[in-house]
């Protein structure tokens, strides 16, 4: 059981990291979320049937990501002066076509070498930028349905909401992505 669980974790770790990175826009926060998720998975659900592992794993991941957003909101409420500084940075990044995904994936070489940074900038995937700009629940719903391939029913269980809500989130996410991509192309 342990070896199959190890194989399962190896098959989902990169995608889980990417989902967390898109949500948090920070590499270390994303790694912390993945670590927390894996530990809870191993501790609480290792004895479940293997076919149950994927929805369980992504449910824990989703909860961890939502907890992150709640804590961030709480922090911003009380440390609003720091929030203004962060907003300034993000608008600078937006005006220079910096992707939020860069903040998590820059190596030290790219951070110090302008040519490497420029090369990375030119390879910005506009779709990732658009996904990062989605509201948290729409983003999670879109990633679980479209990328992870979960059904409406399973996604509803993972996100602990109704199937109707999932359909609404997904529809709005797709519409926003379409608008975002059209504006970026323009």
């Amino acid at each position: 059981m342990t070896s199959s669980l190890a194989q399962f974790l190896a098959s989902v770790d990169k995608k889980a990291y990417k989902m967390a990175n898109i949500a948090t826009l920070n590499s270390q926060d994303a790694l912390d979320i993945v670590q927390d998720t894996m530990e809870k998975m191993v501790r609480n659900y290792s004895k479940k049937q293997p076919e149950e592992w994927p929805p369980l794993f992504y449910r824990i991941l989703h909860n961890s990501i939502m907890d992150f957003h709640r804590k961030k909101k709480f922090r911003n409420l009380f440390f609003f002066w720091q929030q203004h500084e962060q907003e300034g940075e993000s608008s600078f990044e937006a005006s220079n076509s910096f992707s939020g995904s860069l903040s998590g994936n820059l190596s030290s070489n790219e951070e110090t070498n302008p040519d490497a940074l420029l090369a990375k900038t030119e390879n910005i995937d506009q779709m990732l930028v658009a996904i990062e700009a989605l509201a948290p629940k729409q983003q999670q719903c879109f990633l679980l349905r479209c990328w992870q391939g979960f059904s409406v029913a399973k996604t509803a269980k993972i996100m602990k909401c109704s199937e109707g809500t999932i359909k609404t989130h997904y529809s709005r996410a797709v519409t926003k992505l379409k608008i975002q991509l059209e504006s970026l192309d323009a």
Partner: peptide, 28 residues
């Protein structure tokens, strides 16, 4: 979207991959 996300996972930094491997080991 799927293509972009899959590509971004393939292009993950080696440093991040090694950290993820360590996280897996720690959890197990």
């Amino acid at each position: 979207a799927k293509a972009s996300l899959d590509k971004s996972v393939e292009q993950l930094d080696e440093n991040i991959e090694s950290k993820l491997a360590q996280i897996r080991l720690n959890a197990l």
